[in-house]
Design a protein around this nucleic acid. Structure first.
Length: 203
DNA sequence: TAGAGGATTGAT
DNA sequence: TCAATCCTCTAC
């Protein structure tokens, strides 16, 4: 039987709009990112995130720069911001904060928990090894593309639910990847991942 | 409207 | 280390 909107769990507390995007990026670790496409469910535990705020240069919406691509970031939190990177990869972000405060959390890696066979099929591999260890890979494995842009994260096709609680001492912070253009802001330790987790990208 | 560059990935 | 690949943004 197809899922309905009301059957999905409410968004986890990580989406509390009063919280800072950096705090939310840490709290998303351990949560489950799930998709249900054509009745087939896939999903994984979030093991790596990066925080982006309109206040710093690494962010697409730096200083309130609103474009056709990033306009979704300016909406109220709890929706998906999916964009194409390098012309090839779809990258998935969780929009947080209030209207016009364009903060988002990039999900960089997952640990598969459901639909492993379908994910392997989508990745055209017979091995589960590292198929969701990277922002471009996890979207492909879960079937996320730009049609998911702006989608509510309590929808029946794409949602986040509570998983396991990650203790503070298990969370490692580091500078974000691939934003050298952001100058000093590139050094902000806003990349978070679960210590010793084999699914984290670029160990 | 043209040109440059990019929150990546996989092959070599 | 480099190519793939194409959307987005900026400059003119």
């Amino acid at each position: 039987m197809p899922k309905t909107e009301s059957q999905n769990p409410p968004l986890p507390k990580a989406f509390d709009l009063r919280k800072n995007v950096v705090l939310i990026a840490k709290e998303l670790l351990g949560k489950l990112l799930m998709t249900s496409i054509d009745g087939q469910t896939t999903g994984g535990m979030i093991v790596e995130t990066e925080a982006y705020s309109y206040r710093e240069r690494g962010c697409h919406a730096y200083q309130g720069m609103r474009t056709e691509r990033n306009k979704i970031m300016f909406e109220a939190g709890g929706i998906a911001y999916v964009y194409l990177c390098y012309g090839i990869h779809n990258l998935f972000n969780v929009v947080v904060n209030e209207n016009d405060k364009a903060d988002a959390v990039l999900v960089r890696a997952l640990q598969p928990v459901e639909g492993e066979e379908l994910m392997k099929s989508r990745m055209k591999t017979s091995s589960l090894k590292r198929i969701t260890s990277g922002p471009g890979k996890l979207t492909k494995a879960l079937g996320i593309d730009r049609t998911s842009n702006g989608k509510n994260l309590s929808s029946c096709e794409l949602w986040i639910e509570d998983g396991v609680t990650i203790r503070k001492k298990e969370i490692v912070s580091a500078p974000r990847i691939g934003i050298d253009y952001a100058g000093e802001d590139a050094k902000l330790p806003w990349r978070f991942f679960i210590k010793d987790n084999e699914w984290v990208s670029k160990m």
